[in-house]
Design a protein around this nucleic acid. Structure first.
Lengths: 191, 191
DNA sequence: GATAAATTAGGACAATTGTCCTAATTTATC
DNA sequence: GATAAATTAGGACAATTGTCCTAATTTATC
């Protein structure tokens, strides 16, 4: 049975997000899952191995979320707005713990951790998906710059939300993103 | 003599930035400063106390930097560009360790650390200073939103730089910030 | 230059860390 | 239902953590 393994990854995912990778101990995870501490090494060969499993889970879930947005929205414009709206949907957690992707990348960078590049790939999934949407909107060569721009924008808003805890600001920025999309000269079909 | 205390704070400042607060041990700092490990407690009553001293140092240096920008630039427009340019000036460190202010805020949030609010005040210094500059440019009620917007923008660019390590992107974004400032309808004197 | 105060070195401390090992228990296989 | 395999619990481990204490040393005071 791999149920235990999945429960470990699930708990580690939450704890790594809410308290950080380094600050989360096996004792913390064991207490949450309800298993013995020495039992981890039957499922993972090290804490780094567990981290890799958590990152893989996040990548998988990110792909699923992006697919879902694509499936439930015909208009690429609306799809991009789905992306912007996660700031509002997850506002409580973002204000408390920051963006899960950004904060993990930052922590692994400081630790010079081998999984650093893997974590950045989650950003890569968003970037590529957004580029695809902008291209569908007719942005052509501007698609990639626009994708990174809106990704950076959302990261900036997330950081301000963490620092100042201002929910109204998040709402206003999402509104600004919508206006920016509609009026952008490089996006012919929405202008 | 307080020289030792200052050297401790100095080393801690660098190490907290480059490897994180939690991941930096007294042993690490002691090795850098070249003193005994048990010697810290004559200068600081705890690691949290040392963190407070580091944050105070950063706030002091931020104030000094902002004063300097104000002194060496007549035009508030140029002053704001000084702010945007730190992304380029510190690009190597930002790509390696992220923004020192943002990453500290994020880490302390996750740790639910008492000094969390203190760290956010560094962002507050930038925000208030930027608001002051936008007001000087005639932005009136738009000054505060514009200040937080450009602060968020810089944070987003810093995070992308950390994740993707793309120096050209930083350069392009600073250029975009300049254009944005010049053409913004809420800033009469630059439009 | 003697005396008091400030500073430092070195080690002890209890707690915690990730890791590993072994014995017990559960589960799957025939 | 016996046997093998997979899983788990519990504890040992060496290393490291922040913290504290004491004795030695340096510095300041008169």
């Amino acid at each position: 049975m791999t149920a235990t393994r999945e429960r470990i990854v699930e708990s580690a995912d939450t704890l790594f997000y809410e308290t950080g990778f380094e600050a989360t101990s096996f004792a913390d995870i064991a207490a949450t899952v309800g298993i013995s501490r020495g039992n981890f090494y039957h499922h993972f060969k090290s804490k780094d191995d567990l981290l890799c499993a958590v990152i893989d889970l996040r990548k998988e879930r990110t792909r699923a979320m992006l697919d879902e947005w694509e499936k439930t929205n015909e208009d690429p414009f609306d799809r991009i707005l789905c992306f912007a709206n996660i700031l509002m949907t997850n506002r409580a957690k973002i204000m408390a713990f920051g963006c899960p992707v950004g904060t993990l990348c930052a922590e692994l960078s400081k630790l010079e951790h081998a999984a650093r590049a893997q974590a950045s790939e989650i950003f890569g999934l968003f970037r590529d998906w957004l580029e695809h949407q902008f291209r569908a909107l007719g942005a052509r060569d501007a698609a990639l710059p626009l994708a990174v721009r809106i990704l950076a924008w959302s990261q900036g808003v997330a950081m301000m939300a963490t620092a100042f805890g201002d929910e109204a600001f998040i709402r206003e920025e999402i509104s600004s993103i919508r206006t920016w999309l509609k009026e952008h000269p490089d996006i012919p079909s929405t202008a």
